[in-house]
Design a binder for these strands. Sequence first.
DNA 1: GGTCGTTGTGGCCACGGGTGCCAATAGCGT
DNA 2: ACGCTATTGGCACCCGTGGCCACAACGACC
Lengths: 199, 199
Amino acid sequence: MTTTPARPRAAGRPGATSHAAIEQAAFGLFAERGFAGTTLDDIAAAVGVGRRTLFRYYRSKNDIPWGQFDRTLDDFRRILGSTAPDLPLWEAVHHGVVRFNEFPGDARPGHRERMELILGTPELQAHSALRYAEWRAVIAEHVADRLAVSPTDLLPTTVGHVSLALALAAYDAWMRDPSRSLAGLVDEAMRGLRAHLAC
Amino acid sequence: MTTTPARPRAAGRPGATSHAAIEQAAFGLFAERGFAGTTLDDIAAAVGVGRRTLFRYYRSKNDIPWGQFDRTLDDFRRILGSTAPDLPLWEAVHHGVVRFNEFPGDARPGHRERMELILGTPELQAHSALRYAEWRAVIAEHVADRLAVSPTDLLPTTVGHVSLALALAAYDAWMRDPSRSLAGLVDEAMRGLRAHLAC
DNA sequence: GGTCGTTGTGGCCACGGGTGCCAATAGCGT
DNA sequence: ACGCTATTGGCACCCGTGGCCACAACGACC
């Protein structure tokens, strides 16, 4: 009889904050005092919430700059899944990576600020390895699917690692030259690699 | 008149332990109770030294499994420097990476144990990103040298990232199948990549 | 063999991230 | 009004890390 709501239904005490509110407060403080110079107490105070509560929204301090990356990975899966199946595999994957890194003009500054923080802070560089592993797995699964092999085989994991390599090289360059487009840099990195390997 | 000793001369109180002793004790405990399950107090007690002293030998707990990687990087630099200058660049780099990962038979078990720990422990996977960056820089410098460009240009950094990608894919496979040779896997990863990119 | 400079040691303390526990809270449906 | 339930947030505690500093042990030199 109940209309079986899609969402599990909202019962119990309402949340005191949101991911968006936390990230906004946190990024403000990071910009002011640096990542290491900002304590979780600072952030909690700025959000107006208990320190303990922060851990209910993010697993760790290091996770805050990444936001809800899980969702982003779902998008990535969808992008790869919608590439033309008759495109050569390497082009499909490359295309997916390029599209994944295309941001609408107004989302740019935010994304850049986020990546500057992540790529410029050693603790975060290290932590990011864990996020990258999830990203690589998405690629490996797509490659394994198209080749009908296991995602843990050498080729799918290799393509995952190499795709990440190109993306990170592009980000490195983007940090040095903000005027370039990220997608263009990923493209250029791929062209450079193919020339390097004498394709 | 003094024979101007190469080493700066040993004065002052002698060290109470050594890197080797610490690593041996630490690896034993890690194998027993896991990395996270081993505290620095445990290690210090096992070595018979104050906890504070451990930080004089390693910058952090995470650095213990990596040993003195700086030295290893010096070797790597030497290996790359001694590749034939008439070899195509990509082959020279690839060759260097392969040789860097060739271990004499008796060094194998130790190296494998070390890498199993590093690659199988999330905290260490994350921390390793910092070591990898140094490793990549060695490659980027070599490539930049041979091409007479800056090490921060897109191509050198791309080659650095991609070389690391191949090495890590090979290590992933090695973890799954210890019977394969690491060098052979790096080689196979490269062949797979070139085929993938239709070289 | 005492004194001095040098170098490594290790205890103490403070800070900050992270976790388990649990009582308090605030909406919902009945 | 009452219970149900999800969320909050305080408290205690562990552990890695770094600053500080007194102290130990050696070589050198007188």
